[in-house]
Measured scan of single mutants.
Amino acid sequence: YFQGQLNAMAHQIQEMFPQVPYHLVLQDLQLTRSVEITTDNILEGRI
Score class of each variant (00 low, 15 high):
I42E: 00
I13V: 09
V35D: 02
S34L: 03
P21D: 07
V35A: 08
F17Q: 01
L6H: 03
V25H: 00
L6Q: 03
I47G: 03
F2W: 15
V35F: 09
M16K: 12
E15P: 02
Q19R: 10
R46S: 04
Q3A: 10
V35Q: 06
L6T: 04
R33A: 08
Q3K: 11
T39Q: 07
H11V: 10
M9E: 04
M9R: 05
V35N: 03
N41Y: 03
Q19S: 11
Q19H: 14
L29F: 03
E44D: 08
E44R: 15
M9S: 04
P21T: 05
E36G: 08
Q3Y: 06
R33C: 14
M9P: 01
L29K: 00
F17L: 02
L26T: 03
L24M: 09
L29D: 00
I47H: 02
E36P: 07
M9I: 09
T32Y: 05
H11C: 11
I47M: 07
Y1W: 12
D40Q: 15
Q14F: 12
F2S: 14
A10R: 03
Q30C: 13
F2C: 11
Q27K: 11
N41D: 01
H23M: 09
L29I: 07
F17N: 02
H23S: 09
R33K: 12
I13G: 00
F2T: 15
G45Y: 05
T38K: 00
Q12D: 07
T39M: 13
N7G: 09
I42Y: 03
E15R: 15
Y22E: 04
L29N: 00
I37H: 08
D28Y: 06
L24A: 08
E15I: 13
E44W: 13
Q30H: 10
A8K: 10
Q12C: 14
G45M: 06
L24R: 06
Q12P: 01
P21N: 07
H11A: 13
T32D: 01
N41V: 04
V35S: 06
V20N: 02
V20S: 03
D28S: 05
F2N: 15
P21A: 08
P21L: 06
Q14T: 11
P18C: 06
H11G: 07
F2H: 12
V20T: 05
I13S: 01
I47C: 05
N7D: 13
M9H: 05
E36Q: 12
Q14V: 14
Q5L: 13
Q27T: 08
Q27C: 11
Y22H: 06
Y22G: 04
L43T: 07
T39F: 07
T38Y: 00
D28I: 06
F17C: 05
Q12W: 12
T39D: 01
L43C: 07
T32K: 00
M9Q: 06
H23P: 06
G4Y: 13
H11E: 09
N7M: 15
I13W: 02
L24T: 06
R33N: 11
P18G: 04
R33L: 14
Q12R: 14
N7L: 15
Q12L: 12
V25C: 06
A8M: 13
S34R: 04
N41H: 08
P18R: 05
G45R: 05
A8H: 10
I47Q: 02
I13C: 03
P18I: 03
D40K: 15
Q12N: 08
Q27G: 07
T32C: 05
D28K: 01
P21H: 05
L29G: 02
I47T: 03
D40A: 15
M9F: 09
I37E: 10
Y1H: 11
P18E: 03
M16L: 11
Y1F: 13
I37R: 13
L31N: 11
I13K: 00
T39K: 12
A10Q: 04
D28W: 08
Q3G: 08
N7A: 14
Q30E: 13
Q12I: 13
L29P: 00
T32I: 01
M9D: 05
Q3T: 08
G4L: 14
G4I: 14
L31T: 10
S34V: 03
Q12H: 11
Q3C: 13
G45F: 06
Q19M: 12
A10M: 07
D40M: 15
R33T: 06
V35K: 09
Q3E: 14
A8R: 07
L26A: 03
R46W: 07
F17I: 02
T32E: 01
L26I: 11
V25S: 01
L24P: 02
M16Y: 07
Y22C: 08
Y1M: 12
F17D: 01
Q12Y: 13
E36S: 12
Q27P: 00
L6F: 08
Q19Y: 15
Q14E: 05
R33G: 14
I37S: 07
L29C: 03
A8W: 14
Y1E: 13
F17K: 02
L43M: 09
F17E: 00
A8T: 10
T38Q: 01
I47N: 02
A8L: 12
L31Q: 11
L43G: 03
M9Y: 10
P18V: 03
L43K: 12
V20M: 08
D28C: 11
Q30M: 15
Q14M: 14
I37K: 13
A10L: 09
I37L: 11
Q5F: 12
V35R: 08
I42V: 05
T38C: 08
T32F: 04
F2I: 12
Y22I: 08
I42L: 07
A10I: 08
L26V: 09
T38E: 01
V20H: 03
V20A: 05
F17V: 01
P18M: 04
Q5I: 12
P21K: 05
M9K: 05
I37G: 07
L26D: 02
Q30T: 11
T38N: 01
Q30V: 12
N7Y: 15
E36T: 09
Y22P: 05
L6K: 02
T32Q: 01
L26C: 09
T38S: 03
H11S: 10
Q19V: 05
V20Y: 09
T38V: 02
Y1S: 13
N7I: 15
I42P: 00
I13F: 02
H11L: 15
L26S: 02
M9G: 03
Q3L: 08
E36A: 12
Q19W: 15
D28R: 05
I42N: 01
N7W: 15
T39V: 15
R33Q: 13
S34F: 03
Q19D: 11
S34A: 04
Q12A: 12
I37C: 08
V35M: 10
L31C: 10
F17Y: 08
I13Q: 00
L26H: 04
H11T: 10
A8Q: 12
L6S: 02
F17H: 05
I42C: 05
S34E: 02
Q30D: 06
H23T: 08
